[in-house]
């Protein structure tokens, strides 16, 4: 009896250790930050893991959290949708580059109205979020949507409760197109919303949109697709009502001046172009210039480089816009130049 117990215990331990060894053997890279690119980062991480066994642990705690954690050096890289200014990057000893681009999409939950049926002008969107327009059957909305039957209900506005780069991109757009918004609210990762409910993360906003009737919110495009939310057509700068699609994001991204902006801090909202989606943005990765453990830094760069080379199709399947190859070359140059170990040598050969 006793011998059997001992044997069973040893067997159980061996099996556990055996399974554990696989976990011990692989490397894990850690990152934290924006929820905007989380769908594509996690897909990339899954494919990279299948190929190389290296795991990515990415916590989508929001852009502000990502910046804080990378400054505190608790993660290998931080992710933020709101680009940091050159002075802030200098002060914190960080470098920044864009990893992926995508669109922020207003979504609605209205009975009888499907995806890309409702049209909104920039002014209407700002007025709804300012609380100036409170009912769906308001004359101004009906004027732009003469063929739709709009319900006679109050508009429930949904925004983000937490500080977020998605909010930063959205409020950046509203600040550009509405003087009233610029004065009353402004552009930020967290703002003083005049009206509405707050959801936690893109996931929280999507959740509210699914449950609360007659509501409007804004989410990153992948969340709208995955949760089957009805997106809205927006009038862009050229006066055309565009639906959010990969092509409209690419059109907005085509005009970005990557070469001449410090820290690649390009803002893609309200870009010219007939087919451009007005609320496009890039999501950025932040790393420290000084990498005291160059092997770990190289593991991170290997992963990110893999994403640049092999990740385009995955990104496009999720309706993100990959960074153009020219810009990727510029980014690799920045890696070689700016990332160094404690002795000052570049960590890349």
């Amino acid at each position: 009896m006793k011998a059997t117990n001992v044997l069973l215990t040893v067997l159980a331990a061996a099996v556990t250790l055996g399974m554990g060894a696989e976990a011990w053997g692989g490397t894990t890279i850690t990152g934290a930050g924006a929820t905007f690119p989380y769908p594509v980062y996690s897909k990339w991480a899954y494919l990279y893991n299948q190929e190389t066994g290296v795991r990515l642990n990415y916590q989508s705690i929001g852009s502000g959290g990502g910046i804080k954690q990378i400054k505190a050096k608790t993660v290998d890289f931080g992710a933020s949708d709101a680009p940091m200014k050159a002075e802030d990057l200098e002060a914190a000893g960080l470098i920044q580059w864009p990893m992926i681009m995508g669109g922020v999409v207003p979504v609605v939950h209205l009975d009888g109205i499907g995806a890309n049926e409702l049209v909104l002008t920039p002014d209407l969107l700002a007025s709804i979020y300012l609380g100036k327009i409170t009912r769906w059957d308001d004359a101004a909305i009906r004027k732009v949507n003469p063929d739709l039957v709009l319900p006679k209900k109050d508009i429930t506005v949904v925004h983000r409760a937490d500080g977020s780069g998605t909010t930063w991109i959205f409020t950046n757009y509203l600040t550009k197109v509405s003087g009233a918004w610029k004065e009353q609210v402004g552009n930020g990762k967290a703002v003083s919303w005049p009206v509405g409910l707050g959801g936690k993360g893109n996931e929280g906003v999507a959740g509210f949109l699914k449950k609360v009737p007659s509501s409007i919110g804004y989410v990153e495009y992948a969340y709208a697709l995955q949760n089957k939310l009805s997106s809205v057509k927006l009038m862009n700068r050229a006066g055309k009502a565009v639906a959010p699609t990969a092509e409209s994001f690419q059109s907005a991204a085509a005009n970005a001046d990557w070469d001449h902006t410090a820290g690649f801090a390009v803002v893609l909202t309200d870009q010219p172009g007939e087919a451009s989606w007005p609320i496009t943005g890039a999501s950025f990765i932040l790393m420290h210039r000084n990498q005291p453990r160059p092997d770990e830094a190289r593991a991170v760069l290997d992963f990110l480089d893999w994403c640049f080379i092999h990740g385009d199709r995955t990104a496009m399947e999720l309706d993100y816009v990959p960074i153009p190859d020219k810009v990727v070359d510029l980014i690799r140059a920045v890696w070689s130049k700016d990332l160094h170990d404690s002795s000052g040598r570049s960590i890349l050969p």
Binding site: S63, G64, K68, A161, D162, K189, A190
Partner: peptide
């Protein structure tokens, strides 16, 4: 709970 991690 919502804003502490993000407050800069």
């Amino acid at each position: 709970a919502n804003e502490f991690t993000e407050a800069d």
